[in-house]
Design a protein around this nucleic acid. Structure first.
Lengths: 136, 136
DNA sequence: TTGCTCCTCACGTCACGTGAGGTGGC
DNA sequence: TTGCTCCTCACGTCACGTGAGGTGGC
């Protein structure tokens, strides 16, 4: 864990987000760089980079950026042992939504794989009758 | 396969899309209802409903609605045996992107599950050090 | 000094959500 | 006739993309 500071370009390469996305996360107060250079360049610590990585990893869970910020805040509160009942209930509710989203992602992945193999086979719609889809 | 006609509300319930989404798909010429009632109500055939279901199932593949329309068109062309070389190449390219997206979905699902269990455990960021994340 | 990287507006985009005000049809 | 369902605008939203025009720093 070095306490080196990183410019936004290096951070974007490492985490795999666009410059615009990282700047947007600052606009909405989701990930604020710990510092700025004399000339105004954003400077990110390793902790900032970890936070960006967490935000990126959470994207498939389908929360809004505002909700994501709240979840990260709740983690800090709960980890610090300073959680009120309301905080715990809120986190519980987020966790339930996350689990539901995982189940949906799992189904979507299965469907996506089936559709993808069909794309390559050039079977097109013909194979669709083989197994009755959910909307029938 | 009945040739009954369905109003948009019944279609939305069956397929699991919002009214607005189904209307939007008509706006962008992705799924056009086969008919209209005398009073202007959209009327969907079973084939229309299948098409909506396919579009919905393809959403996780990450194509734009315009690309989705092209893929459905290509399926018809290829199934009909009337595909030019260019059509086959384009479908091949779509299939490759779909496969890449499947791989990404698979990784995202794994990460999402890990994150989700961490949410419920209230471990928060503490567990993040256990396995080095990709951006380190 | 030359590039390469970064900066701040600010408008554009994609896929819809959300009323507002009005009408069809069993 | 009463509801419930549907209709068409049309503006709003979310998460960024995409230049435009200008400057920082090894």
């Amino acid at each position: 864990m070095s306490d080196q500071l990183h410019q936004i370009g290096a951070v974007a390469d490492r985490v795999g987000l666009s410059l615009r996305t990282i700047r947007h996360y600052e606009d909405v107060a989701l990930v604020i760089p710990s510092g700025r250079s004399a000339g105004g360049f954003r400077l990110y610590t390793d902790a900032d980079i970890d936070r960006l990585g967490q935000v990126k990893a959470m994207k498939p869970l389908g929360f809004s950026l505002e909700e994501t910020a709240r979840i990260l805040e709740l983690q800090v509160i709960i980890d610090g042992g300073a959680a009120a009942d309301d905080d715990l209930q809120q986190m519980e509710s987020f966790a339930e939504r996350a689990e539901a989203q995982c189940r949906q992602l799992s189904r979507q992945l299965a469907d996506a794989r089936q559709l993808t193999s069909r794309l390559r086979d050039g079977l097109g719609n013909a194979g669709a009758a083989a197994r009755t889809p959910s909307w029938r």
